[in-house]
Every structure is written in structure tokens, then in C-alpha cells.
Design a protein around this nucleic acid. Structure first.
Lengths: 241, 241
DNA sequence: CGTTAGCTTGATTATGGTCAAAGTGGGTGG
DNA sequence: CCACCCACTTTGACCATAATCAAGCTAACG
């Protein structure tokens, strides 16, 4: 179990036994958190970071008038708020999307880790850099892609990220977001997300079954969305020396 | 001169003499680069990172069909591609906007720094986290703000970032971007950027003089754009212990 | 079963894109 | 020094994409 927990970290890091142990020791408590529960409020100072073991979470920013924008979707294996280790005051809030099992890492422990384990530090840094690369892909999508393309691009991204941690089937994955939430991700109204869905279905490149996204020809979808998974650095390892 | 060079790094880090020296030693050569010159191409593997000493640079992603999206604007004091230290293969290309003076940091030297100087490592990590926070602010803007609001938000951000490194006057700063480039930043057409400009001018909250942006009442502009500078972490120091 | 959250549809409006042409001004070469 | 050039800005007319509003539909859940 502790092994599976660090699936993603280990994929990027090739940790030594010593580093594994230190990482495990840095974790404080496990927590189970219900769906739609706020973990950290936007603007709050945080003193621990959250590794998601099970379930989905999101990060969001809110405007005065209530408009909200989702800035990140997190899947199992992700650190949802590792950036709070150094930023402290979060510019975005963290909220569970589904019920989650998480492991908390107090910042003082991460501090100690980063004093003693340079390689492990670089691996954690790397993971926040991938978060940033995903931000850039979203910026690209919002600036240059049409609504159906954006939706398709998101499906491609989530499929690859979920496959990385063994949570997608060959032709489908579960998407635990309502169309309204998807709107807040993509910068679209819920109605327009619905119409974009219909277009993808009518064009025959995406099917849906409840909350499952089903795609028989991923290459076709990738071409449609101009998707290139390089930015996820899926199987890249931070070199040790 | 080497002192001014690290203005931003030192603001966030409170470096020891030892760390300062190590950082200086990690720099390889200084370079002068003409305007509109590509420093790293999108998709290329990079082996050094670029600290901007003078001038402006940008990062961009391009689609097959030529649509491009600018993902970051960099001002003096910024590391334009520090993320390439660990990501290696860049998902966005780096290009100068104006003529630049830069200092290169070979990744092997950064590697050594990060082995030996945990605090300095955390400061560099912090700077990439601020980049990511800026990405999130842009995502928010593109998803939830109108065209004139987005433009105003960008002005507020650049004003604060330039002030941090002593490059803005009280009521104005130089914006070395054409309206077409601003369009590629904001996800708008050049024509619509022009019309958004006109609206800000007509509402009396922004004036322009050549490439200077002049604002007499910043608070008004900030309110208009729903701008909160917290995400820039302008004067925040990474604690040493 | 009734309630409710989420999905779907239609009609209308608004924001922003596209295309084309006409200004403007700084820099360069004759 | 002037005239031309070129890049950038501005304008207008028209079109496309997406938002909004309102209502009806569906299905899971208590």
C-alpha cells in the first residue's frame, strides 16, 4: 500500500530505499475526506501539503462577483497543493470533487526532506513543474482552441494522466465532473459544454455512458484537439546524476 | 552589477555570502541577444537556463495550423526557462521580445547547486512556483474576465512585477508588446485588443503614450480588473529555517 | 413516488473574430 | 532633408462563437 501510494513520485524519481523511507516518514496522518469538501480555502496560509491516494480534487480561484475558474484537476498520485510548501499563502483553493483518501505532509517535514535529500527534492520540484506545464496547456486551450477542441483536449489529457496511474481502461475513463464543472474548467457556460459534447458525439469521436468517456479512436481525438502529450512528461525520470 | 543581477532572487531568498558566491559561480557566460530572437524552440531539449538581466522575453506554444499562444512574459530578474532544468524538453519556446542581456546557467551547475545548497534550491523552486501562480491568474482571466478586464489585469500585473525590479514609474510603465502580441497573450484578436484599449481609454482609466501605459488611479484599474497581487508573492521570502 | 441535481433544448443576445481598407509614424536610404 | 516604406494602429461592415434565459426532461436517491 505505501508502495502504490507513491506510484507517481517513484515513476519520476527512481528513489533509493533510503529516500522512500524518508518520504514515508515525512507523511503525517491519512485522512478520508468527503466529496465537495474544501481542503484549503483560497487566500489561506497552509502548513501541510496533500497527496491524493484515492479520488479526485480540484483547485479553483473565485472573483468578487462569484465567477469561478477551476485551475487544476488532480487525480490519485498527484500532490494537490505541494506549491503551498513554499508559497504558503495559496492563490487558489483546494476542494475534493469526489470522496478522497489523502496523506498529509507537514511543511516542516518537507523542509527537512529538502535539507537532506536533494534528489528527492528535485523530484518533488519536478512534479510542481508538470503542474505548471498543464497550466500552460490550459492557457493554450483557452486562448487558441474552440469549445469542442478544448473539451477533447481535456479528455486526452485526463486519459493519459489516469492511464499513468492505472485508472483508465483502453477505450474509456471515468470523468467525475458535471457539465457545469467542466464549464468552470474550460471557461465555458454549462450549456455550451453540453452542445460541445453533442458535437463530439455527432462527429462520432466521443461516446458517453453516464460519467464514462468512451473513445474508440484516440488518435482521431488527439488530432482533432491538436493534442501532444509531451507536456505531461509521463514517463520521464529526474536523473540522479 | 552582479548584485543587481540577482535582485529578485535575493529578495525571495536572503542569501548568505556563501550562497551568493555559489550562484555567481554557477553562471556561465553573459550573452546579448537581439529582439525577436528565439532562445529555445518549443519541443527542444535544453541544457541551460536563462536569467534575464535586461530586456523582455516571452514563452509561447504553437499549434499545427500556426495559431500561437503566449504563455508567459518575462521581465528583468526572471528566469525565463528555469523549468527546463528538470523538465529538459520544453513544451513552450522562449523568444526575446526586445534586445536582452542574459546570463546562462548550465544545468549541470544548477544540479550541483541543488546538491549543495538546499535553501538556494528552495528559492529557485519558489520562483518557478510564482511562474505557475501567474499561469493560474492568466487561466482565471481567460476563463472569467471580459476582454477589457483581461487587458487591465495584465497591466496591473506587469506594473507590480516591474515595480518590484525598479522598472516602473509611479503612474506608468513601458509595455514592449504590439497589440497583435497582446492578442496572443490574452487569447484575443489584434482588432479586439485595439477596441478594448479604446474602451479603457474612453472610460478614463488608462492612457497610452506610444508604448507607455499611463494610469493615474491604479486602485480604480485594480477594482475594474478584480486584481489581487497576492499571487505574485512580491516581497515574500523563503524562510531559511 | 416525489424531489432534486444534472442534462437537454430552443430562442435570443452579446462578445469577440474576420476581412478589408485606410491612417500614422518612426526609420532608412537617396 | 525629404520621401518612401513598413510595421503597427485604427475603423467599418459583417459573421461566428458562445452566453444567457427559460423551460422541459431524465434518472438517481431517499
Amino acid at each position: 500500500m505505501p508502495g502504490a501510494l507513491f506510484k507517481r513520485i517513484e515513476r519520476h524519481g527512481a528513489l533509493s530505499e533510503h529516500e522512500r523511507r524518508a518520504l514515508l516518514d515525512a507523511a503525517s496522518r491519512r485522512r478520508e475526506i468527503p466529496a465537495k469538501h474544501e481542503l484549503v480555502a483560497e487566500g489561506n496560509v497552509s502548513s501541510e501539503s496533500t497527496l491524493i491516494v484515492e479520488g479526485f480534487a480540484l483547485r479553483q480561484k473565485t472573483l468578487e462577483d462569484g465567477r469561478r475558474q477551476i485551475t487544476a484537476i488532480h487525480v490519485p498520485g498527484d500532490f494537490a497543493d505541494l506549491h503551498s510548501f513554499l508559497l504558503k499563502k495559496l492563490d487558489d483553493g483546494v476542494e475534493t470533487l469526489t470522496a478522497c483518501k489523502v496523506v498529509m505532509f507537514p511543511h516542516e517535514n518537507l523542509k527537512k526532506l529538502s535539507d537532506d535529500f536533494p534528489h528527492l527534492t528535485r523530484v518533488l520540484w519536478f512534479m510542481t513543474l508538470v503542474d505548471a506545464a498543464i497550466h500552460r496547456a490550459w492557457i493554450m486551450g483557452m486562448g487558441a482552441l474552440s469549445a469542442p477542441e478544448r473539451l477533447a483536449h481535456l479528455f486526452c489529457e485526463l486519459k493519459d494522466r489516469l492511464t499513468q496511474v492505472g485508472l483508465a481502461q483502453a477505450d474509456r475513463f471515468r470523468l467525475p465532473l458535471t457539465q457545469s464543472e467542466l464549464g468552470d474548467v474550460l471557461g465555458l457556460s454549462a450549456v455550451h459544454v453540453n452542445r460541445s459534447f453533442q458535437q463530439l458525439r455527432m462527429d462520432g469521436i466521443v461516446q458517453t455512458d453516464k460519467r464514462d468517456i468512451i473513445v474508440s479512436d484516440w488518435d482521431e481525438l488527439r488530432r482533432f484537439a491538436d493534442y501532444n502529450p509531451d507536456y505531461l512528461h509521463l514517463n520521464q525520470t529526474v536523473e540522479r546524476d
